[in-house]
């Protein structure tokens, strides 16, 4: 009987902990899943890939934008790279276009145009139609330029450099 009581208590406690856990994660979703992108604004980046999230619904490339001199990346007050993310079609569609974990390993330099989130978070949707340009390995473009100017670059998606927004 004593055993059973303990088991019962464990069951109740475990369930309550889980419900609390669900409640705790709830606010986290509020801020970007449905955030709208500002389609009127286009930001142009040349950055260094830090990670690819090969999400089935929306693949995301996380990257550190390069500075104007293209010698290093933009850094925050703590000296750490500022990280942005660009979201596009699902991983399968993206793979068909040549964008995957394998083709965009960490360290890859690329140029992309994105429509930023209205929330102000450092993320946005890939400008489409519009090309993504991959620089040759470890060869950043000249100051103020994008990867399309570097000899040996790879063009993804037919089209041109998206937007005429000031380079970042």
């Amino acid at each position: 009987m004593e055993m059973k009581k303990k088991a019962g208590l464990f069951q109740v406690a475990a369930s309550l902990a889980l419900v609390a856990g669900v409640a705790a994660t709830a606010p986290a979703i509020a801020h970007h899943s449905f955030a709208l992108y500002n389609m009127e604004q286009t930001l142009m980046f040349t950055g260094v890939v830090t990670r690819v999230n090969p999400d089935a619904n929306h693949l995301q490339i996380f990257f550190a934008p390069m500075n104007e001199e293209r010698k290093n990346v933009q850094r925050g007050e703590d000296g750490k790279p500022v990280i942005w993310a660009v979201e596009m079609t699902g991983s399968a569609q993206a793979a068909a276009d040549g964008i995957s974990v394998g083709t965009f390993p960490p360290g890859t330099i690329f140029s992309v145009g994105l429509h930023p989130l209205r929330s102000g978070e450092k993320a946005g949707a890939r400008v489409n139609p519009g090309s993504i340009y991959k620089c040759p390995e470890k060869k950043p473009p000249a100051p103020g330029m994008q990867c399309d100017s570097v000899e040996g670059h790879v063009t993804i998606g037919g089209g041109q450099l998206p937007g005429a927004a000031p380079a970042r």
Binding site: A26, I29, A30, H31, S33, F34, L36
Partner: peptide, 10 residues
């Protein structure tokens, strides 16, 4: 529905 983030998942 679009702007209140938890409605659609719930």
């Amino acid at each position: 529905i679009q702007s209140v983030g938890w409605i659609v998942p719930l």
